[in-house]
Design a binder for these strands. Sequence first.
DNA 1: TAGATATCTGAACGTACGTTCAGATATATT
DNA 2: AATATATCTGAACGTACGTTCAGATATCTA
Lengths: 196, 196
Amino acid sequence: MGRKKAYDRDELLVGAVEVFREHGFARTTTQMLVDRLGVNRFSLYAEFENKLGLYDAALEAYDESIVGRRFGPLERPGAGLAEVRELLEFYGAAADGPAAGKGCLLCNTAVEFGPDDPIGTGRVDRYLDRLEEAFSAALTNAQQAGDLPASVNVAREASFLTASVLGLFVMIRARAPDARLKNAAAAALAHLEGLG
Amino acid sequence: MGRKKAYDRDELLVGAVEVFREHGFARTTTQMLVDRLGVNRFSLYAEFENKLGLYDAALEAYDESIVGRRFGPLERPGAGLAEVRELLEFYGAAADGPAAGKGCLLCNTAVEFGPDDPIGTGRVDRYLDRLEEAFSAALTNAQQAGDLPASVNVAREASFLTASVLGLFVMIRARAPDARLKNAAAAALAHLEGLG
DNA sequence: TAGATATCTGAACGTACGTTCAGATATATT
DNA sequence: AATATATCTGAACGTACGTTCAGATATCTA
């Protein structure tokens, strides 16, 4: 059947996500990818077609793994205010975490590419919808559990939390000081808890 | 003394800001700039040294004109809650405005370049400080005017408002639906007014 | 009006980078 | 073992784009 692949596709994507988060799409060269992933150009192109194909695959992997890890808890049936709190506290403390200087790959993509979407897979749009919907579901659950008054406008607060998280992502990417992140997250949380 | 310049430096920068806001730095070509600004390559290089020099000048012009127009009111001695409200309402309605699909050039720069700052002029850092400080000053004034309790943690709310605005910028860049922007801005404002 | 000096024109240059390919190498099947 | 098939290697290619330059053009001073 021929020779075995010397690389693992998923491991390649983990590395690609890292490099693209650090340098963005345009400023990442194929040479950087070859070096950091320890794979050959040929294999990279055989597996992902071209640089944009690799980027799109990286976005998909990022959405599944990283976004899934952070927002998945909010999307589960029993989720409520506790999950929102944990999320905000996590990003509020991200100045020292692995995302420092990197931010969120999908948020970065939204800004670098703008509304043009040259990839054409609509991943950014679906990502924004996903965040909003995750917050919306958790807040609705909280209402039904009696942790949030029925009078609260869930759609409004979900959009608000989405914007807050995006703002934190920009700050994390820009290596804003720890206190600034902590403060911003704490105030957003205080707002939510002040609704009760 | 020689021939007169056929261009006006400030007009050039207005156009450059526009193009860079639409396409970012890397995806903007010198050809696009020549076409849109109606100036020749030679003059562009004579005036700004190179593409990065033009970008830096565009950042400076943007900071002075656009940022100045929006955040200047917050920085004036008498500013208070009213100015914060007007700012949030403005960006909450930006889905139909001239910034739609563009966002904020300095926020975009923070994300596209990340913490590397290849320009080396620290404009992004100073921009983030400026936003935070503008909010901080207005909130402090509001406290002294009795519009905001002395117990409010001004630094915390200033960081929060900065993050909110950055989040709105990302949404505006991504052409998020009007309702989402309006909601996010309204909730941030409600939070502020709920402190009193 | 003449000369000097600065800007304009657009074609050309150099290079960095995305992409490709022919030859080499390894593994699976028979 | 022999053959077939798939992957690996690294050098080479093509091109898009930032940058430069020599010749042309306009405007200022005297």
